[in-house]
Write a protein that binds this DNA or RNA. Structure first.
Lengths: 338, 338
DNA sequence: AAATTCACCGAGAACGTTACCGGTGGATTC
DNA sequence: GAATCCACCGGTAACGTTCTCGGTGAATTT
């Protein structure tokens, strides 16, 4: 049976003083003597008093809860971003309510619709990849709820956003392949319509045209983000008459898929076909040949997003900021001819 | 500026009826005619009414929030368990507040101490590996808060627990190594004192003695759960005069560390030294040689834990249950001589 | 000595919701 | 035709906390 926790009233009653005084003493605000404060604090300890956040939330119209909405948590990138978020939230005494959408737009919508903003101070979102309309987010922002997007941002919504430098990372990755003598570079991309997918595609294309490399529609394949998608994308590329000799993958999981299928076909990864990914998933160091990649500052992105959200919550009329964090090329075996 | 959401009072006022009636209509309970219910529902929709969970939580002394406390989320096992938890919670309209301890006992204690049980219906915990005393959990349980442990359980606390079959998994893994002709089998284990570490150690030892294999103290090394720990454990083993010819690792990450160091020393994994892990982390299929392992039902463990917790919450005087889910041997290259 | 200031405390309302109890008026029963 | 029942609705208190205001007595000023 659930016992009843001691309340502020119990403390007041035990000390024969008023609840107002107890309330003030506990919050250490004003108008209370050092003696009575000590009395109250000791009694609170003795009665194992814990503040009831429902009550405080009700009167202050603010709880210390943040919601985080993610496509999934079972991969390196998102779990690391979340850890960064958590780090900042913890140090500021905020709780995180985590929702995962499984990359399902309907589920995302459903979660948003059922969100109780009376018990939420703000929202941190990376949108689902099948994102249709983003009206539901706009509504929330119009209602005055602080929202920060990260990684997978909704382009046409005016609020704070945090992301890695997708364009330059892709540009650098592609340039690296070119510098290593690969001539026919394909791109296995993410779903169309997602901002960061588009940015990486653009970086890839610009790098190609800058160096006068051929651009072929058939060498660009859009699909999901999983390793399996990487495998089937690679299969498709290999069915072409004019096969590429290198692949830039939108993320490491797809790059791993590409390497796995190439190895199955007994093609020497690196020597015959170069591969480079994006993320710096721990897997990229484990697989052999090891995978070259653009390291994303996932942990930093999480921290920055949460800091931004807290600023947003504290200052009314906070002006939206866009933060772009740089990536870093990490050269391993999969992109070296030797 | 944060706008004010419509309340039950606003609906009542707009319809010129009482708040009690609106409350009943919204909850679809009793004592309200079909006509007025429809009126209320329509008006609620029109005013974009959202229930204030702080208020309901205050009067009903129950919110729809569950807390999950984990050592970390950036690995396959815990992120998958969490996804399972989330799946059940979502289908029952519960929210999950996630805390990560970074495997730090102090932080775990701090989180527990600051938990607001007035806005929490229950607790799902996998304890930190440096766990000292578990008194803080006992206190909570004594206070009547439903708690379910999973994976890393606190042995001496009487509440529901969900785990994989650690003993039999370890027994099977070790037996598999023996069956494949390895004679000197080492174990790189987790930290001492953790229930599942002990179970896996015991399974390993029992398998050895059952088949009359030598048991050597020096072949058993305790340390943390990371890949780096696996690497340094392997280094230690390789400094011994009497080197083992196979290793059973407490988890896949440590097994990967072992493989990496063996490869660095140009030792043929499988042929010269067998390796087997525990978990079935996706990494185990990626690394080469691929890693044999005991597959854990992580997703199922998450689901079961959450179901158990919900039962616990609903039924008062719920009798604690212990659920043990079986693992499955997956044979790959790292444990085959050939 | 009167006036003013100040430190400290308490009473009451409010936040949004639900639970409990009582009160209508119309239909049903005897 | 009176008594009973029932479907429906409203008023009020309560949940635990904070906020606003007013009030005390002592200390300080003039």
């Amino acid at each position: 049976m659930r016992r009843h926790y001691a309340t502020i009233k119990d403390i007041a009653h035990a000390l024969n003083i008023s609840v107002s005084t107890v309330s003030r003493a506990l919050r250490d605000t004003y108008d209370v003597s050092a003696d009575t404060r000590k009395l109250v604090l000791d009694m609170a300890m003795k009665l194992n008093y814990k503040p009831n956040f429902n009550a405080t939330g009700l009167v202050k119209n603010s709880t210390h809860n943040l919601a985080v909405i993610l496509p999934g948590i079972t991969n390196y990138y998102f779990s690391t971003v979340f850890t960064g978020i958590q780090e900042i939230a913890y140090s500021h005494n905020y709780n995180i309510i985590l929702y995962v959408t499984n990359d399902d737009a309907d589920r995302e919508l459903n979660i948003i619709r059922n969100l109780s903003f009376s018990s939420l101070d703000g929202l941190l979102v990376s949108v689902s990849s099948q994102a249709g309309s983003c009206d539901h987010f706009q509504e929330i922002i119009d209602d005055g709820i602080p929202v920060v997007f990260f990684d997978r941002v909704a382009a046409d919504i005016r609020t704070s956003k945090v992301m890695q430098d997708d364009y330059n990372g892709a540009f650098e990755a592609t340039t690296h392949l070119i510098a290593n003598g690969y001539k026919k570079i394909a791109h296995i991309a993410g779903p169309e319509g997602l901002t960061f997918t588009d940015s990486r595609l653009k970086g890839y294309l610009d790098a190609l045209s800058k160096h006068g490399m051929p651009i072929r529609k058939k060498w660009i394949i859009h699909s999901g983000f999983t390793q399996e998608c990487g495998e089937s994308d690679m299969e498709k590329l290999w069915k072409l008459n004019d096969k590429p000799d290198a692949v830039f993958a939108v993320n490491d999981r797809k790059a791993v898929g590409a390497i796995v299928t190439l190895k199955k076909k007994n093609i020497a990864v690196g020597k015959d076909v170069g591969v480079i990914g994006f993320t710096n998933d721990p897997m990229s160091a484990i697989i052999s040949p090891s995978l070259s990649t653009i390291a994303e500052p996932a942990f930093e992105i999480g921290k920055k997003s949460c800091q931004l959200l807290l600023n947003h919550i504290r200052k009314k009329n906070f002006i939206p900021e866009e933060i772009i964090l740089p990536g870093k090329l990490i050269v391993r075996e999969s992109s070296i001819r030797s």
